[in-house]
Design a protein around this nucleic acid. Structure first.
Lengths: 339, 339
DNA sequence: ATCAGTTACGTTAGCGCTAACGTTTGATTA
DNA sequence: TAATCAAACGTTAGCGCTAACGTAACTGAT
């Protein structure tokens, strides 16, 4: 194990000088010495001891990614959505010379422990978290970035998308295609801020246009009997012709159930999704959906993190990224093939 | 910030005694003292400083998950396959009291740095890695677990599946259903050990049964023109009727292209996938595929890691998990609806 | 020649913890 | 009664690094 001291001895300088060179703090070291030390360090294969650095400097270049253990419909990392975000986030912060730790956390104690024991410089929350957030922030004077949080707590740094607008876009598009008998399907409809806002945007837009969505068409889909649900919605005297699914994954469940029931998409039923995950363009028919740029989200999260680490007094920001409708083939014009 | 010293002072003991209690090293501390210290630590909200621990003890409870920056067809974490593995791995090692760091690595230097600077106790490689592995292992006396590695280097701990058997199963099933004109489609067919073994199992089984796959039916699918490829394979005088896709994601591309070309699955074309990712059962028609138990894989990886950390002289193991065929609806019997 | 200012280093102390030895006390045994 | 031993602590030193403060040598201006 090569240490600063080893290099110092070989170079005939003090370890402090070597430390300065290793940290690029070169203004107090002559160019000649800098070069010499760099060369020796390289030859000896020096790798700085991060733990010692953290201990001595009282600060780390570590970011914690906190995954909620109670994600909606399974935990994060099981859907391509949050794992893609995590991947991109890791890349971004690595580019800035930071390392990332991954933690599943289920309560305040877990979170606090994760943040403090490693003296992380900042943290990103992925998934749902409750109001203990306030306590966490009070106890940790480090930047905390939330994603897709609709917390009632002010002064939180958040990066999310305009879910409300997404709902509006979906509603507008379905309406434009002539659909008036609509449904909204997704998990945790009422328990999750993200889903709630999509629902609100969806319903508000419709209401303005004089269309209403009956409560029984707003379905918290927690069960596995999607076919039963679709049967109820589509095989009635006044059947639903357009469904807004809260995610593309949910849309794929609808596809599968419709297939089993002999309901054709989009001839008999139109479906619009949310997220635009990788597979959406390969669904049959290709899924019309509300796209959110997950890579950009990760990039922004990383930037916010860096900014707030460098300047802890940066104003709290709540970034809201806009979404866009990606038109494919899962929504048809009403009246063409409808049963 | 509460330290051992703070607790020691409050309890009227030395910080060493507190250290012993905090590490559960209770055989040198009386029951009364143990309880008292535990209570005080709890009241004061003590959280051990991991960096100091690492520095003093020369060992950490950290695991590195190394993601190759050159994964086949995009990087890891973008497909639900490896992200699911990562999630489960994180859980498992967390259960053992370890923490996980995530690193994208692209060369030997990166890997070495990741492992050494944090003094990790072990590492898991996710994705493809080349033969520099030998060097890594020589330079790091910690357990390294590889996943799906067909490295020529011996004495490597690996956890993988029986890709060869998977190929055989696929071949056997297609044959059983009457298909003789087959194709093999996937990315990095020749460059990747995993894919190679699937191909070998596939072809060997077929050859034994007197069926051969012409070379032009073994396709390294790197381009995006799946439709063009399918056209070539299916619209010939002796059309392919069964395709073995190297992954379920690849199968979904085939589905999409077939749809655009008016090729029906399974009536006109049978497709069998690999992995059994979450969405496979929701594809239309539900995908017949070779299933690998990704959670079990993660669990085994974690167990191997723990075993080798506790006893560095454990014998090298190469775990090969068997796979199973999941019969759904994407493979039809030849002669029923074939064009 | 004197002094302030700069450059290029070195010294000291300590971050929080633990490995490796002490030391004390009381109980047990020859 | 002295020797032995284990139980229950304490002491010392140091892990590798850096913050904060020296200090010597040299520079240029007065």
């Amino acid at each position: 194990m090569v240490t600063l001291k080893d290099i110092a001895e070989k170079a005939g300088v003090s370890s402090m000088t070597v430390s300065r060179v290793m940290n690029g703090n070169t203004k107090d070291v002559s160019a000649k010495t800098t070069e010499r030390i760099k060369k020796i360090a390289d030859e000896m294969g020096y790798i700085p001891n991060s733990s010692a650095r953290v201990l001595a400097s009282r600060s780390s270049r570590l970011i914690a990614a906190l995954l909620s253990d109670y994600g909606e419909g399974g935990t994060p990392l099981e859907d391509s959505y949050s794992s893609c975000f995590l991947g991109e986030l890791t890349r971004q912060i690595q580019k800035e010379g930071y390392d990332l730790m991954l933690h599943y956390v289920k309560d305040y104690t877990d979170i606090n422990y994760s943040l403090k024991s490693w003296k992380v410089a900042g943290a990103v929350f992925i998934g749902m978290f409750d109001e203990n957030i306030r306590k966490i922030q009070k106890d940790n004077s480090i930047p905390l970035i939330f994603t897709d949080s609709y917390s009632t707590v002010r002064s939180i740094i958040n990066v999310g998308i305009d879910d409300y607008q997404g709902g509006e876009l979906a509603a507008g598009y379905l309406l434009e295609k002539g659909h008036k008998n609509l449904a909204f399907i997704g998990p945790a409809v009422l328990g999750n801020g993200v889903i709630m806002h999509r629902l609100q945007g969806f319903c508000s837009f419709l209401r303005e246009k004089g269309v209403s969505v009956p409560l029984e068409h707003i379905v918290d889909f927690g069960s596995d009997d999607m076919a039963g649900l679709l049967k109820r919605l589509c095989f009635s005297e006044n059947p639903v012709t357009g469904i807004f699914a809260t995610s593309d994954v949910c849309a794929s469940w609808i596809y599968a159930a419709a297939y089993r029931l002999g309901i054709r998409i989009p001839e008999d039923l139109s479906v619009i999704g949310f997220d635009d995950i990788g597979m959406s363009r390969y669904m049959i028919p290709p899924l019309t959906t509300i796209r959110q740029d997950i890579r950009r989200k990760a990039k922004i999260a990383s930037e916010l993190l860096m900014k707030n680490i460098q300047n802890p007094d940066s104003p709290m920001e709540n970034i809201v990224m806009s979404v866009e409708l990606v038109e494919r083939e899962s929504v048809g014009r009403l009246g063409t093939g409808y049963f």
